[in-house]
Design a protein around this nucleic acid. Structure first.
Lengths: 189, 189
DNA sequence: TGCGTCTACCTAAACGCTGTAGGCAAATCG
DNA sequence: CGATTTGCCTACAGCGTTTAGGTAGACGCA
């Protein structure tokens, strides 16, 4: 009996790949076992249950996304930082649709608090520094930006923007321009 | 043997209620059969499969949502119409989280084209009349608004806005004010 | 090097949801 | 009132999850 060399990390990574290929809801322990040519029950030595697998994939995705965003916004400010943040976000969602879906997976509060999700919040606040917003406007802006980025990625992934000739890329730039203008409008002098 | 009096319509409605109570992903034929105190196989006389049930719930939700939005925006224009549209949308998502989730269910192109989804698109364009946008700006604006509304409803439903003291309602109004300003900025004189 | 322990992977089996085939009885219609 | 339709049934097969308990490879220690 040759051992397959499984580990929570390898399973998580394979699960993330599976999510990108087939969708996050297709990520099952059965499918994963098939991929490693192993019996399903064997996975329970490495993962408590399928919930843990999904949670781990979600955490991986949040981590990756936060890393990409952090790299993108480093050394930028104002509209430049806003665009970099937004593009990093959207690019990740397009390149890794399954992982992006996973990143939206509902985590229990403790897990969420210890996840890279907090880095996302911090970075969003960071790019707003260039717009001189005071509380509670800053919180409002964080929510607005989060809504737009997430909403756009979501609708785009669902194919909602493929019905007309207008390129999605142009609408994206137009939207970011509008947001930038709106935020500049809110600046306290 | 007393008959239960099932029908596709009753099953769809019960499925929508179940979705609101337990989440759209908890809507299964098994759960529905339990609710009607009937064997699962009996449902297959009324529905082709569980996919059809979900599709029907999605269509119901789209219809209801379009009706509410239509009622809300009737007789309004400009910012007034924008706010009414947005509030109708958000209110529906909050009052019927499961149905709202269902409304985002991926429909095949034919079904989508025959659904109330087209009314949504029409109404979004309608409220933009007050902002004097020319193509392709109008399409961009439709996408931006769709993203914000959907993104906000989604994040709010996920509990993403409950970590700070700032009330979600205030952020919502702030966001809509910003959008209105951004759109007025884009108007062709 | 050999022995004992640990553990990675296994078989077996229970449970829940989906879906199909075929049967019986209630509703309906001529 | 009899014939047909149809609503709900039982039975069963397939697939995913999860637990219990067994076997053999890996690893530590003398």
């Amino acid at each position: 009996m040759v051992r397959a060399g499984l580990s929570p990390e390898r399973l998580t990574l394979a699960g993330a790949e599976l999510a990108d290929e087939a969708g996050f809801d297709q990520v099952t322990l059965s499918a994963l076992a098939r991929r490693f040519d192993v019996k399903v029950a064997s996975l329970y030595s490495h993962l408590k249950n399928s919930q843990e697998l999904k949670t781990r994939i979600a955490l991986l995705a949040l981590e990756e996304l936060a890393d990409q965003v952090a790299y993108a916004v480093a050394g930028r400010a104002g509209k430049d930082a806003l665009m970099a943040f937004a593009n990093a976000y959207r690019d990740y969602a397009r390149a890794h649709p399954g992982r992006y879906e996973a990143a939206r997976f509902r985590l229990d509060p403790q897990t969420a608090a210890a996840s890279a999700g907090v880095r996302h919040a911090q970075m969003t606040r960071a790019i707003l520094r260039g717009y001189n917003l005071t509380e509670p406007d800053q919180t409002h802006a964080v929510r607005m930006l989060g809504s737009v980025f997430h909403g756009y990625a979501n609708l785009e992934a669902a194919g909602g923007f493929s019905h007309t000739d207008v390129a999605s890329q142009e609408s994206w730039v137009w939207t970011l321009d509008s947001l930038d203008a709106a935020l500049r409008n809110r600046a306290t002098p």
